[in-house]
Amino acid sequence: MKLHTDPASAALNTVTAYGDGYIEVNQVRFSHAVAFGPEGPVSHWPVQAPDQITPQLLRQAAGLPETPRDPLAFLDEAEGAPAPLPPGAPEVLLIGTGARQRFLRPEVLQPLLTSGIGIEVMDTQAAARTYNILMSEGRRVVVALIPQGEPT
């Protein structure tokens, strides 16, 4: 399926097409999984199937550095208050799991969820379309997409 970009958002990373074995971002075709936000590079994401996704790979996709959490930080946090987002963190991370939606294990999602980052898991086509919409609305969104099917 070919998608068309809005000229006003030409400087932002936009999914311009997808199909069997590829994802196209800004009219550049990738035959491997990628992760990116509206600005910055489109990065290779070392995942070939949803069951390979780990909490560390989700952090990588979201662009979050591995920083150890202060074990006493809970003392300064208000009870019941949502966790503050890490600096530079997206509001939401979209995961495209290929041709079919494949849910991730709760223990894989939990570290980012407790950091206050929303995670939505869907098939790659839906994730690409949702990313383009949220990005065009100016939302802080990051997407990680696994190509569907075999490379062409």
Rank of each mutant, 00 (worst) to 15 (best):
V34C: 04
P41E: 13
V142Q: 08
G116K: 13
S43F: 12
E39Y: 08
I53Y: 01
P82S: 08
P50T: 05
M1I: 14
L94R: 03
A33S: 15
P65N: 00
P41A: 14
G138W: 07
S31D: 13
I95C: 12
H44W: 13
Y22S: 02
Q56L: 12
A8V: 11
N132P: 04
P7F: 07
Y22H: 13
G40Q: 09
T14K: 03
M1F: 10
L113K: 11
Q101W: 02
V143R: 00
R129K: 10
D123H: 07
V34S: 03
A126S: 15
V42Q: 01
P82Q: 08
T16A: 07
N132S: 01
P65K: 02
P86T: 13
F103G: 14
P87W: 10
S31V: 12
V34G: 02
T14H: 09
F74R: 01
F30S: 07
I95A: 07
P68K: 13
R29K: 14
K2R: 15
T124A: 12
A128T: 05
D70G: 09
P38I: 10
R139D: 10
T97F: 05
Q110P: 01
V142G: 02
E120R: 06
G37W: 00
G63L: 05
A81Y: 00
E39F: 11
L64H: 00
L113W: 10
L12P: 04
I23N: 00
H32S: 15
F30R: 02
R29N: 09
P87Q: 12
V25A: 05
Q101C: 09
F30Y: 15
S115T: 06
V34L: 06
I146G: 00
Y131Q: 08
V108A: 04
L58R: 00
D76E: 14
I23S: 02
I133Y: 03
N13E: 02
R129D: 03
L64R: 03
A17R: 11
G88A: 13
Q125M: 14
V28H: 13
R140M: 10
A11F: 07
A144F: 08
S43G: 07
Y18E: 09
V121I: 12
P7D: 09
H32T: 15
D70V: 11
V121G: 01
E66I: 10
T152M: 00
D6Q: 13
I95F: 06
V142H: 09
L109P: 07
P82R: 09
P71H: 06
W45D: 04
P87F: 06
